[in-house]
Design a binder for these strands. Sequence first.
DNA 1: TTGACTTATATGTCTAGACATATAATCGTG
DNA 2: CACGATTATATGTCTAGACATATAAGTCAA
Lengths: 242, 242
Amino acid sequence: MSLITDAPDKPTLYKQIRQDIERRILTGEWPPGHRIPFEHQLMVRYGCSRMTVNKALSELAQADLIERRRRAGSFVRRPQHLSAVLKIADIRAEITALGRAYGYELINRRLRAATAADRIRLGVKKAGKVVAIACRHSADGMPFAVEDRLIDLSSVPDAATADFANEPPGSWLLHHVPWTEAEHTISAIVADDRTAAALDIAVGAPCLVIDRYTWRSARTITAVRLLYPGDTHRLVARFKGG
Amino acid sequence: MSLITDAPDKPTLYKQIRQDIERRILTGEWPPGHRIPFEHQLMVRYGCSRMTVNKALSELAQADLIERRRRAGSFVRRPQHLSAVLKIADIRAEITALGRAYGYELINRRLRAATAADRIRLGVKKAGKVVAIACRHSADGMPFAVEDRLIDLSSVPDAATADFANEPPGSWLLHHVPWTEAEHTISAIVADDRTAAALDIAVGAPCLVIDRYTWRSARTITAVRLLYPGDTHRLVARFKGG
DNA sequence: TTGACTTATATGTCTAGACATATAATCGTG
DNA sequence: CACGATTATATGTCTAGACATATAAGTCAA
């Protein structure tokens, strides 16, 4: 579901310098704490101006591979805590990418005044209207995930009239509302009878849960809970690090 | 467990330009596909040289917020698929960060010739030796996670003599072996009797599973499976996007 | 020894140019 | 009209300087 690729680039000088240093760091030749040659030394070694060296080092610093300290120099950072770019794609794109046929089914759609529980879930204080949606995504006709979503109509008025019978709300929102911030929480539960029926798995079978909250400029847009069969579905995050 | 913070920086000119454009993109003032003013126009607007504008735009391009095309200009990119930086910290750091007391207990440590199953798990073909470790992490005396790890001794010879009785293998590896690539797979299972006993939860209770493989320059270092109680533990990924 | 002050220095930012290069737009030609 | 050649232009990279600024290291006094 995710992969960080290094596009092969024309080896301009600053990129060459950057890759050169990166290689030494990744192979361990320059261990954490090692001081990288000063910009002045590097410009002599590579026969270029300081700006060129600076650009290479700046990018390495931006990638957290090195740390730059005024007057002291640049240092190889100690291995970062494991961190991964976890790309959780639009479910339709995810299923299509697997080469399987995507299916969507709206189970329930209700427009209502926000209940107390709704307001807590969306993290809003004022009363207002919400759209509650339950739907199911399938791959090759088999249940893939069930979705339980709440959309704050005060943030997304258009959602009141949107037709979610044919378009999944996730796709609709992605195309209609720019988001600025989001949060995923991943956990595990066992299927209750309703979930089990919807996913066509046994009651008590493990489920992977993704709760996603999306904001736009500190304003809640939507809260969604996705349930996947836990033994067949996997989230994969692949990454590089130092 | 993760958070992308924007450190408040002294507002140098290029950063101001960058944030200015970033704001317009994030608020939707400049929607996806919108062409950003040419560098030449921006240098007039901000009264600076092209290199300054170029630095701002280059960083925005590096962050995938804009796309730059020669002769055509720079354009706001359409919203990326949801992607999050999922920071899976060293467990000790994770527990400490929660303000709880960290505990570690080695359950089992065996040095053996790699079995067929070991070789499959590590993705190596040649015969060799491995260290198999089972251990438990606890927070405030309560089981937090159980770990089942395999270390390839041909990649990490020192692991044969390392003392994992007092130091968790994850911390030891992080400090002794630089890694260049890793992969996480997140899934859910239900606890079997052994897992239930180790985590002090009921048989059949949900567990969050993290399988992590770590490589160094295409060479497998270690494979580890972490089991967390699924209803109490959560992976959180918070992020920004366009 | 400790704390306050000074100094040297590496990085941070910026300029006003230059040439390279990819490509959108235009122009000509069949 | 279609297609290939030409041209204009925005970005990509680079230079040789400049001054700003944080700070490690050295200096000196209490």
